[in-house]
Nucleic acid binder design. Structure first.
Lengths: 265, 265
DNA sequence: TGCGATATTGCACTATACGCAATATACTTC
DNA sequence: GAAGTATATTGCGTATAGTGCAATATCGCA
């Protein structure tokens, strides 16, 4: 019943190496030997040899001349190989299904892609009127719930960097001024979810919440959408709660490091 | 004199773990135990324990139900922490300096950022007339040498995904049709470098080459720009050669896994 | 120039990671 | 559905790989 812990033994030195990697990635500053040794509670020499191995493999690097460590290009190369949206889809798909099923509406998963939100997965409930926004579709960041959820942490400067001079208008409710968008971001952070009051497509309502890693960074968004005729204002309270919950659960799953999981389909 | 090899011993199991990570990242398909064991030339059981350690730490993951391995979310989380453009800057800065010094013009380093190219580093030669495009500036992908270098591998679909409906016109030479842009990409792949014939700013010429990792993927671009009055057509041959060479060298450095380096500043 | 902190190397000991062989599980094939 | 083959997983004794200690080298600062 209790957690039967590590039946398969950890490979100690590999485990330590990975710990170093994560510590270095996390740290805002280059990390020196002492800190690593302390972190692992091993002798400086051991930490040294571990770090050297990582460095020779390109997973760590030493800023010109210095002796302390930062992440190396190997990790970059690694992460580029992989289609990360698949990762998100994998982790989030069950939640998406539950959400769509529970509310009997269409649920979407999106990531940021430049100026747009990209839908990378969706689950449709059994409804007569299907909703727009298929997987693969790009929609503007500033005019959709998903988009705004992805923007939630942006400040004035970042917004301007992203959008350049102006915000395109799609419907009469589209937000077209930077101050208004900034304020909207603020309130999304506050509430934990974003809404779309027909700001992109007439007659469409949508709620979306940012998916955050444990460090707070936003990596995607999850939400539901439906025609305004069906998705009424009085649904907001209940629906948003569920959406936010979903986002939170996904975020936690992404951040999990030690998997206890033995999930069967 | 000869390469004095690894004086600091490799931590074997860490090294093996990293090899697994890279192999899995590289592979298009999930990787199973047998392949890992063969790759490392160790017993299945050893490979198993290494892989399990990676999995428990979230660096590997097993697709629902399956037994074989794909990359896990930990790497994603890792790579998100880090400002990768800094990595590129670090690796490329010396080359940039050499390039600017050698040709006595301004050299830039850029990465793709959505619809734009973002200048992340630049070195100015000692010239009276400074050139536009400071670090931090965003310029359109389809109308600049750097931008087009970054687009070189895009196909028709990817171009349309990126730009949406239309290509903004900046000068009379700006490419504004998708077929033309696609053709331009093709010729950039062929030649290895992109040019900008005052397509964004009047009177400006620019040459840029894509920086590719060993697997061919484009991660940035490097190039030089100058007023057309100074940067003449007859310079193209010589300059482009140098720029392409630079890009190649940077790409190699980024892909390097085993560092022999002992560079002193 | 010397002192304190840090990084690096050599060496001896033992815990660790290894291969082997046994077992369990998944997947064909008849 | 049984037998067979490929794969994953566990247990265990042993050799080696990784450790800490201590010596040395390098750096930074006064």
């Amino acid at each position: 019943m209790a957690k039967k812990a590590a039946q398969v033994p950890f490979i100690q030195s590999l485990d330590r190496g990975l710990t170093i990697l994560q510590a270095v990635a996390m740290s805002k500053h280059p990390v020196n030997l002492g800190e690593l040794a302390e972190l692992l509670d091993v002798d400086r020499s051991s930490a040294f040899r571990l770090a050297q191995t990582l460095r020779r493999r390109g997973f760590l690097s030493t800023p010109a001349g210095r002796k302390d460590y930062i992440l190396g290009s190997a990790i970059w190369t690694l992460s580029r190989q992989y289609d990360w949206s698949k990762m998100l889809v994998r982790v989030a798909h069950q939640e998406l299904k539950d959400l769509a099923g529970g509310l009997n509406e269409t649920a979407h998963l999106a990531v940021r892609e430049g100026k747009n939100a990209l839908f990378i997965d969706s689950v449709h409930a059994r409804r007569v009127i299907a909703v727009a926004g298929q997987t693969g579709e790009l929609v503007p960041l500033h005019a959709t719930a998903h988009g705004k959820a992805l923007l939630a942490d942006f400040d004035d400067e970042e917004l301007k960097d992203t959008f350049g001079s102006s915000l395109q208008k799609f419907t009469k409710t589209t937000i077209t001024s930077f101050p208004a968008l900034l304020k909207e971001c603020q309130s999304i952070r506050q509430r934990g979810y974003a809404t779309d009051e027909a700001e992109y497509m007439e007659g469409m309502r949508c709620i979306a919440a940012p998916i955050r890693l444990h460090d707070g960074s936003i990596v995607g968004s999850i939400g539901i959408s439906a025609p305004a005729t069906r998705f009424l204002k009085e649904h907001y309270a209940a629906h948003s709660k569920r959406v936010v919950q979903c986002a939170k659960k996904i975020g936690e799953r992404l951040s999990i490091t030690e998997e206890t999981s033995d999930e069967e389909e």
